Amino acid sequence: MSSRQVESGRDAVGLWTKRCYFAGRAVMDSALRPFDLGSTQWYVLYQLAHEGPTRQRDLVERLQIERATMSGIVATLLRKGLVDQVPDRTDQRQKLLQLTAAGTKLWGELPDLTFIREAAFDGIDAADIATAVRVLQTATGRLENLLQKGADV
């Protein structure tokens, strides 16, 4: 398949979705670098700042990352003194994460990252965005269903 076909066909959706994601992630990482934070660490802090104490297991599901990856991120945030990890009151086996005073202070100093979304999507017609969301939701649902069925891919 020629590169021109990839840029205009169904393969282009995956290509441009991936490129957009990585570009946004790179801008985010650049904005967070002065604070010694990575984007996934930011997402954990965001969750804790907006939703309060959260089970580590729930963050794994919410952020769609591996448990081992989450363990490393939590270890880093613990070492930096930004989060505490305590046993969950209802299930002592589960770990509950919460912001420390230092984590709350840092959260208040972080830049507002909505500029990334604005840079990417301002000026794009709302109907076009709605179509893109609908297409990506449908494709994602189909792929997740495929995984659930245990398809041999």
Rank of each mutant, 00 (worst) to 15 (best):
M1Y: 01
M1R: 06
S3W: 15
S3C: 14
S3V: 14
R4D: 03
Q5H: 12
V6W: 04
V6C: 07
E7D: 13
S8P: 04
G9W: 02
G9S: 05
R10Q: 06
D11A: 10
D11S: 11
K18E: 01
F22T: 08
A23F: 14
A26Y: 12
A26H: 14
A26P: 10
V27H: 14
D29C: 13
D29G: 03
S30N: 13
L32D: 11
D36W: 02
L37Y: 03
S39R: 08
T40E: 12
W42H: 08
Y46T: 15
A49T: 11
H50K: 12
H50F: 15
E51N: 12
E51M: 07
G52L: 05
P53L: 06
P53K: 08
T54L: 07
R57C: 03
V60G: 03
E61S: 14
R62T: 08
R62W: 09
L63E: 09
A68R: 04
M70H: 00
S71A: 06
I73K: 02
I73R: 06
A75D: 15
T76Y: 07
L77E: 04
R79G: 14
G81P: 00
L82W: 01
V83L: 01
V83P: 00
V86G: 02
P87Y: 09
P87A: 09
D88G: 11
D88H: 02
D88P: 07
R89G: 12
R89A: 07
T90A: 10
T90K: 10
L96Q: 08
L97D: 02
Q98A: 03
L99K: 10
L99Q: 11
T100E: 10
A101V: 02
A102V: 07
G103T: 06
K105H: 08
K105R: 11
W107R: 09
W107C: 04
W107F: 10
G108C: 01
E109W: 02
L110M: 09
D112H: 14
D112M: 12
L113S: 00
T114Q: 08
I116L: 05
R117Y: 11
R117L: 05
A119N: 13
A120C: 05
A120M: 09
D125G: 06
A126N: 02
A127G: 03
I129N: 05
V133L: 04
L136W: 03
Q137M: 06
T138S: 11
L143Y: 05
N145M: 07
D152Q: 07
